[in-house]
Write a protein that binds this DNA or RNA. Structure first.
Length: 824
RNA sequence: GCCGAUGUGGCGGAACUGGUAUACGCGCACGACUCAAAAUCGUGUGGGGAAACUCAUGUGGGUUCGAUUCCCACCAUCGGCACCA
């Protein structure tokens, strides 16, 4: 029976709103469950069809938890500062505040139309002064703790627009807007020292329930490597010996005896030249060309290694021999010390460089004896063996030190230790850990962000804006473009900029940079919990209890693309607040899962330029919110990318209509099949939802509806239990059918049904009979039948007998409830 | 190049701990209803073969009574990082 989805959706959405069933309760006696999805950026394009995938998934979980008796917090808000809105404002001359308000209204309407069980009473918005006063306050905490500092960092600069650009606005080295050339310019910017937390950000991953690939990606991003920093004396023509040194970082100090040359980055040589060193002409040429190259060029695929001899020699502290110093762009200026000791016999890049420029090799590690490895593990031995064969002259694995003086005969591990001790004793090096992770550039020369609440005073240097003056709001400006001097548009508002120093009362200027949009999203999970306490006002200490009640987030779902930025920033931010004593847990999220992207029908990414974007409004209007919710979860495995197929929605709609038809089949009795099917469905859905196997959960409900249709009748009790299950996925129709069949309460207030294991057991099952492992027949038996009974039944089957004729049975494999295999 | 994931009908996908490969949905074909169509309902639907049977889970091997599942090698596709010392 067709139903009018628009009518019933409105009806139940109003009911949920007016009864407040989805409101989380502060100070409740029930156990808490904090369920979180990434809050969206309210863009002008409206909700993307991919958003509801994550939201529906955790909506199902939130709804189930409520029915299971938890006090559930499932909130929603807006991450609304950012570039697209600002650019839209620049283009149209409208206020970003207005544009944001409109976009939020659209998003909220769209989310409401899908029936999510968000607690809208806790809605937050990062651009709301009442919200960002906290973001500003927290920044000041970083500042007070010495973790926020100013440093000169390069920004992208468009030569023709004369403005700074975000990385995103630079496409292939040109300005996205005008196509003009861009270059890097140094600018003093605020930084936050996330690297101080690098170790803890890695170590604390250990105890978290994150999907393994998320952990791996964060570890790789932080990129911890342990090794040593070693100082090499340089021998420069016309300069006294030992007057200069170059430090290198290595993860393999044990191979120092094998270092046959040094390689320094163009950046390092550039530094030498700037300090007055006379480089040979070809060195100068090489360096200036290398520095001009964009990152894309320098890192392009399968590029031949280039380099040039610098003219400088270095002294290997272990062998005391002079070795040449080369310049090459494969060594990065930003990583480590910008220089390496090359050990061509034991590093692949050094090896290919040495081959190309005919530099000497010196073997200092012998692969471990096969015998030694064989003693441990066969697979390992094979792996070790193959790596030895493949590398030929270059062996990168661990082994035994040779040609290495006092290290000879030691294992790589032991040799590393001894070498570090030796370096320290001689005063030429020490153990050192480096990270790939760099400090967080926290300044933007933009309008649409939180103003950085600092004041610069000639006398007092940088001073915090006092808590009582927060929020520090954005001034009204005439133009939203960054200024031609590279300052943010705020710099032109002299009335706003010029102020008095909070410390000494003298004249002072405000910082005109704003914060990146990552700032507001780095602590928003706290804001939802804080929202109803103390009117969201200072001080932070007044939220201690409520944060203790709600934190950490029990389940956080979001996109893989946020793994190394938002997810890492917010973990860091929370850890910092934890150290300051403001939040109760060192980690913000106990569990993190990820959804797969929704692709266009042809399997490619949806994009406006391709015109293959699916509009959720149209889908909801045409097929109904429940069908869209079901399809978002049914379309494929939740964690994997899946193409959007409009036909899939047709099937969901049919399923809902079939469910509606069951109302006519309600009667006093039902068959065993229906009862069993119901309990099987409850079990399957319960388990699948927890494991995020939503696609098979939906399929289980379909199977049940098909069963009832075949059987023709269902009791009211069973139908009601089914509606509770269905309510997770299709809450509008489930409530409607519940009311139609006499229910007076919202389905959301019912307890989650419990299945009876006894009712799930089938009394007769079909068992395959195999001959030599091939299925040859089917028999009907009790699931726990004894082998003799099953054999008798099987051998009396004419189909099976045919195979047994004139053969001797060698073996019978019988697995209860699974298989009977007769081996001839 | 490194890391990670994936590969099953016409399509999206399912398969517990190794136990009837293709659940569920889409599509398609035929039938019913209809003047007709849509919608709906019913039946069928991996390939080959009249059938017995046989071949099929990216490819090639292996372990096993039995492999989509475990092991080895390879191929392809997607994602992340990209010369990280």
């Amino acid at each position: 029976m067709a139903f009018n989805h628009q009518e019933i959706e409105k009806k139940w959405q109003d009911q949920w709103e007016s009864t407040g069933v989805f409101h989380a309760k502060d100070n409740s006696d029930k156990p808490k469950f904090y369920c979180l999805v990434e809050f969206p950026y309210p863009s002008g394009a409206g909700l993307h069809i991919g958003h509801p995938r994550s939201y529906t998934a955790l909506d199902v979980i939130a709804r189930k938890r409520r029915m299971e008796g938890f006090n559930v917090l499932y909130p929603m808000g807006w991450d609304a500062f950012g570039l697209p809105t600002e650019n839209y404002a620049i283009k149209t001359g409208r206020k970003p505040q207005e544009v944001t308000a409109e976009n939020i209204a659209t998003f909220k309407r769209q989310l409401t139309s899908l029936g999510f069980s968000f607690d809208w009473s806790r809605e937050i918005n990062t651009t709301d002064p009442e919200y960002f006063k906290w973001t500003q306050w927290m920044f000041l905490e970083f500042f007070k703790a010495g973790l926020a500092y100013k440093a000169s960092m390069p920004i992208n600069w468009c030569l023709s627009c004369k403005t700074g650009l975000a990385n995103e606005e630079v496409v292939d080295g040109s300005c996205e807007r005008c196509g003009g050339q861009t270059e890097k310019r140094d600018k003093q910017q605020w930084m936050i020292a996330i690297t101080k937390y690098a170790d803890r950000l890695i170590d604390d991953l250990e105890g978290l329930d994150y999907v393994e690939k998320i952990k791996a990606q964060q570890r790789n991003w932080i990129g911890k490597s342990e090794g040593a920093e070693i100082a090499f004396d340089l021998v420069v023509e016309g300069q006294p010996e030992k007057s200069h040194q170059q430090r290198v970082f290595t993860t393999r100090p044990d191979t120092l005896f094998g270092a046959t040359f040094l390689v320094v980055s163009p950046e390092v040589v550039d530094g030498w030249i700037k300090m007055g060193w006379q480089a040979h002409e070809d060195v100068q040429t090489y360096v200036s060309q290398a520095l001009k190259q964009t990152e894309v060029d320098r890192t392009s695929d399968e590029r031949e290694k280039t380099g040039v001899f610098s003219g400088v020699m270095a002294v290997n502290p272990a062998t005391e021999k002079q070795i040449p110093v080369w310049v090459a762009d494969y060594v990065l200026g930003q990583y480590g010390t910008g220089a390496i000791m090359a050990v061509p016999a034991h590093d692949e890049r050094d090896f290919s460089f040495a081959k190309k420029f005919n530099l000497p090799l010196r073997q200092v590690v012998r692969p471990p004896d096969l015998q030694t490895i064989l003693g441990t593990d066969l697979a390992m031995a094979k792996a070790a063996q193959s790596s030895i064969v493949i590398e030929h002259d270059c062996y990168v694995g661990d082994g035994i030190a040779i040609n290495s003086g006092f290290l000879n005969g030691l294992s790589t591990q032991e040799a590393t230790k001894q070498m570090i001790t030796w370096l320290a004793e001689k005063g030429v090096g020490e153990a050192k850990t480096t990270f790939k992770l760099r400090d967080w550039v926290f300044s933007r020369q933009r309008y649409w962000g939180e103003p950085i609440p600092l004041v610069h005073c000639e006398k007092c240097d940088w001073v915090s804006v006092p808590e009582s003056q927060l929020p520090l709001c954005l001034p009204e400006v005439e133009k939203y473009e960054p200024s031609e001097t590279g300052e943010s548009p705020l710099a032109q508002m002299t009335d706003w900029v010029n102020t008095t120093c909070p410390e000494c009362g003298g004249p002072a200027q405000r910082e005109t940079d704003t914060m990146p949009n990552w700032a507001g999203s780095s602590w928003y999970f706290l804001a939802y919990a804080m929202k109803h306490t103390n009117n969201f006002s200072f001080p932070m200490s007044s939220y201690k209890e409520i944060l203790k009640d709600w934190m950490p987030v029990d389940w956080y779902n979001g996109g893989m693309e946020h793994t190394t930025l938002h997810l890492l920033y917010s973990r860091f931010w929370n850890k910092f607040l934890f150290d300051r004593g403001y939040v109760p847990a060192p980690e913000p999220y106990a569990k993190r899962t990820s959804h797969g992207l929704i692709m266009a029908e042809d399997g490619t990414k949806m994009s406006k330029s391709k015109g293959n974007v699916v509009n959720p409004d149209e889908m909801v209007t045409q097929y109904g919110a429940d069908a869209v919710r079901l399809y978002e979860l049914f379309m494929g495995p939740f964690a994997e990318p899946v193409p959007w197929q409009i036909n899939g929605l047709v099937g969901m709609r049919r399923f809902l209509e079939k469910s509606t038809n069951l109302v006519q089949m309600i009667s006093e009795t039902e068959s065993k099949e229906v009862t069993r099917g119901l309990h099987q469905t409850i079990k399957k859905v319960s388990e699948d939802v927890e494991a995020m196997r939503f696609n098979t959960a939906v399929s289980a409900m379909m199977v049940f509806v098909n069963t009832v249709k075949e059987q023709g009748s269902i009791t009211k009790e069973s139908f009601n239990a089914f509606l509770i299950v269905l309510c997770l996925f299709a809450p509008h129709l489930a409530n409607e059918l519940n009311q139609q069949t006499g229910g007076t309460e919202l389905l959301e207030t019912y307890p989650w049904p419990v299945f009876d294991p006894a009712l799930i057991v089938e009394d007769v099952i079909q068992m395959a009979v195999q001959i030599n492992g091939k299925a040859r027949g089917l028999i009907q038996i009790a699931p726990d039948a004894e082998e003799s009974v099953v054999m008798e039944l099987a051998t009396s089957d004419p189909n099976i007998q045919k195979y047994l004729d004139g053969q001797t049975i060698k073996k019978v494999v019988y697995v209860k409830g699974r298989i009977l295999n007769i081996v001839l």
